[in-house]
Design a protein around this nucleic acid. Structure first.
Length: 421
DNA sequence: TCTGGGGTCCTAGGACCC
DNA sequence: TCTGGGGTCCTAGGACCC
């Protein structure tokens, strides 16, 4: 059996750890730049606040004191996530971290007398008491069914214990599928919903009763996989240890439109710096670099979305090499007089650094470059992240809008929580 | 006035090879 | 005159997820 552990309203729950007075009150968390809503407490959902709603639509509610807003505090959420995951890790033979607030646990091959339900109920307690984060757990023979089970675990109408189990036998799976709307299924997005509705498929039960051939023809092999998983047949693998990301990217919507090349170039350099940090942390090199800039997509006048790609002859992880290339790419698509609202970079074709091949006629001294990068890494880890940065990166070129930021309680000494006695 | 960011996987079509 | 076909790799774009 597989278990899916899901933290309830994760970002909101993180904020509540340090603001227990907000328990049972409407709370939302905003995206970067305070753009739109990315997490809601149950009370906020009950007020009718939808996901991804732009900030200005709820601003007045917060001013009237109806709902409490937070800017995202990603440092804090990442740290809390690591703590939760480390408890989960010890609770199962294998774990796959699926996102910042979700993980699959693999309980296949447990002895027949193992009481999984009791074990998971106590896990819910442990995480709540140890970290202060409420979690829900769904258990089923496939990952897709485990996702459905976790949704039920969250709802008190189905579960009072926050653990919901779907057994492997056919009839009990069938009972679950009958009333469940197909739109609730992991892997069925907007496009597929439209297609299925056109074919009179409303529930999971309608869906699994179609033939495999029909599903494959209409929805491709991903659709067929979902179909098999819903019938209780494992079609999506459990991925044990993750071997690092396939792709690393960084992008931002700017708080206002940018016309100036140097400011644009300095934010691109910022994106590169952040990607390189992640790249080096997983000991990879980048083979393909994409730089893109876009105008405001909510304005109907000129639309200008451009991207440029650079393929490295020798994969690189050196900021000193990548930033000038990115700047050149930017220069080739930049137009005077256009206001850019968003920009970003994508690193793909990542490779293992130790596997880098020496290339004849390589114009760069790789050993020297590595030495320099290592010095930079060491200085930055010793004295703080922005001690030494590339000149192009600049300082504070674009302050991010975060008007309702909570403190970095767990990752920054100056923000550590104070206790009044 | 104000509208997120970071990912994965799959597919179709072009280039190229023998 | 007659003008293949299969395999692989790459890339852009779509769909989906949290």
């Amino acid at each position: 059996m597989f278990a899916l552990v899901d933290c309830d309203n994760f970002f909101v729950s993180c904020e509540r750890i340090f603001r227990p007075d907000l328990q049972n009150k409407p709370v939302v968390v905003l995206s970067g730049n305070d753009g739109c809503i990315i997490a809601r407490s149950n009370e906020a959902k009950a007020l009718g606040i939808a996901m991804a709603v732009p900030y200005f639509k709820v601003k007045s509610m917060s001013e009237r004191g109806k709902v409490t807003l937070f800017s995202s505090n990603i440092m804090l959420y990442g740290d809390i996530s690591r703590r939760v995951m480390s408890i989960l890790q010890d609770a199962a033979p294998a774990m796959e971290v699926y996102s910042i607030d979700e993980a699959f646990l693999d309980f296949r091959g447990m002895p027949a007398d193992f009481d999984l339900e009791a074990h998971l109920k106590s896990l819910v307690e442990t995480v709540q008491r140890g970290i202060g984060i409420p979690i829900s757990i769904g258990v089923a023979p496939t990952k897709t069914l485990a996702k459905l089970a976790a949704n039920r675990a969250k709802k008190s109408t189905f579960s009072s214990s926050k653990v919901y189990i779907i057994n492997s036998n056919r009839d009990s799976i069938r009972e679950i599928l009958k009333p469940t709307p197909i739109a609730d299924v992991w892997g069925i997005g907007r496009k597929s919903q439209v297609l299925l509705r056109k074919n009179n498929i409303e529930t999971c039960y309608d869906f699994v009763n179609r033939s495999a051939g029909w599903v494959k023809q209409a929805m491709g092999i991903t659709g067929e996989r979902t179909w098999r998983e819903l019938r209780g047949e494992k079609a999506i693998d459990f991925v044990g240890e993750s071997d690092g990301r396939q792709q690393i990217s960084n992008s931002r919507t700017f708080s206002s439109e940018i016309y100036d090349f140097d400011i644009l170039a300095s934010s691109i350099a910022n994106f590169i710096t952040s990607c390189v940090t992640k790249l080096r942390a997983q000991n990879s090199t980048v083979g393909l670099l994409t730089v893109f800039i876009q105008t405001n997509r909510f304005k109907s006048n000129v639309e200008y979305n451009e991207s440029r790609v650079h393929r490295f002859n020798v994969e690189s992880d050196a900021i000193t090499e990548i930033i000038p290339i990115a700047t050149k790419l930017l220069k080739s698509m930049y137009r005077v007089g256009i206001g850019y609202k968003k920009g970003g970079v994508v690193f793909s074709s990542l490779a293992d650094k130790s596997a880098r091949q020496a290339v004849l006629f390589d114009t760069i001294d790789r050993d020297k470059q590595d030495t320099l990068m290592n010095v930079l890494d060491n200085l930055n880890s010793k004295f703080g992240n922005h001690t030494i940065i590339s000149a192009r990166k600049g300082f504070d070129a674009l302050p991010i809008k975060r008007e309702n930021l909570s403190r970095c309680y767990t990752t920054s000494w100056s923000d550590i929580i104070e206790v009044k006695c």
